[in-house]
Amino acid sequence: MTGVIEAPAPGRGGPLLRILPPALYAGRARMLMLRSSLAYKRAWLTIFSGFFEPLFFLVAMGEGLGSLVGDLPGPGGRPLSYAAFIAPGLLAASAMNGAVYDSTFNIFFKLRYARLYDAVLATPLGPVDIALGEIGWALVRGGLYSAGFLGVMTGLGLITSPWGLLALPAALLVAFAFGAVGMAATSFMRSWQDFDLVQLAVLPMFLFSATFFPLSVYPPGLQWVVQAFPLYHAVELMRGLTNGVVGWGLLGHLAYFVVMAAFGVVVASRRLTALLLR
């Protein structure tokens, strides 16, 4: 479980780490992930439960509602059964949900109440280690949800292309990006009430990011809005990969998440520095 992100040693980091002072990074982010894996040793059920949510949606809407809806146009215009249409959307959403829940509620508690990071900062680790380690764990959690759901999709015959194999690494990137932005947002939160804002961001995205119906149902102006949502890009990415409709456009979606992840890591690290190293 650990070592998913191998953090480079200080001094030879990529462009991301050059923006952040070297004194804030010891290259041991994976020790935070080790900590999380030990903390969850006895709480695997809480992670497991997150896997069922998209499955219930798939059954209720794909099979139930799908019998009324009929086929929808998939990527490249190919008709898809309704279940096959929404499954990649649910896959993207489960990567998002796993990462967002972990990087918001859990991190807020550790930051404000458990004072976990104060203890961590008394060791050689710095705020960048904390940010990368915690976002890394959010990635693991999002990745687990996605892997479980991909297994279900495979079992139901909803993955029609070997490109579908790449859906898992894509889901990891999506989870990392959502985890990074989730942690950055959490660092600005003052009380538990502020988490209503997380719901306010996540739920509409889940419903309207071309998850349950194609983008073409929106008027042109709204289409632009939807295309700005990160989840829309995750849904398009998953739908393209699981159906084997692969083009340069997918790289655009990937780039969206690379930028989002970098932005989240930098903001989260800086905020942790401002909050904890006063």
């Binding site: 020790m31 080790l34 900590r35 030990l38 961590v120 060791t123």
Partner: peptide
């Protein structure tokens, strides 16, 4: 670390 056992507190801290 209230989420860890007594021994794991020492273990994880050493790993840091």
């Amino acid at each position: 670390d209230t989420e860890l056992s007594v021994r794991d507190n020492l273990h994880v801290y050493g790993r840091y």
